[in-house]
């Protein structure tokens, strides 16, 4: 167990989650299932990003009584990927809401959610 580290576990879980989301997007016919697959894909990417920023044995990047102010740089994990992932989570929610609004309009026009019935633009 000594060679496997927390960041290895997180990166592997993230990669498998990305593959599951991609599989759901490629093989499902229902539009709502495709949107769920996209959301899983997004979560997998975030897990990989936070897992890359982990430093062995250090603690969370908040300076209070638990972290000494002078030696702060030697005791915290990387704060930069966490800031990026925070932004990315909120934007992912916005994109999911937008896709759901489009799906609702598509259903109101054609009365079906099967993606194979939408062939207006097919040559």
């Amino acid at each position: 167990m000594e060679q496997i580290d927390l960041s290895h576990i997180a990166i592997t879980a993230g990669i498998l989650l990305i593959l599951t989301g991609l599989w759901a997007i490629l093989t499902q016919k229902n539009i709502l299932k495709m949107i769920i697959g996209f959301s899983l894909f997004d979560t997998g990417i975030h897990i990989i990003m936070v897992g890359v920023g982990y430093v062995k044995g250090k603690t969370a990047p908040i300076l209070d009584e638990a972290v000494n102010l002078e030696r702060a740089a030697r005791e915290v994990v990387d704060p930069l990927p966490q800031a990026m992932v925070l932004t990315a989570i909120v934007i992912g929610l916005g994109i999911t809401a937008l896709m759901l609004a489009y799906a609702l309009r598509l259903y109101q026009k054609k009365n079906t959610l099967d993606v194979k019935k939408f062939n207006d633009l097919k040559w």
């Binding site: 997180a10 603690t59 989570i89």
Partner: peptide
Amino acid sequence: LVLEAPDVAMTEAAIG
């Protein structure tokens, strides 16, 4: 939370 990122954990729980 296990990966020492409490801000991200709070955001994911509330939004996701």
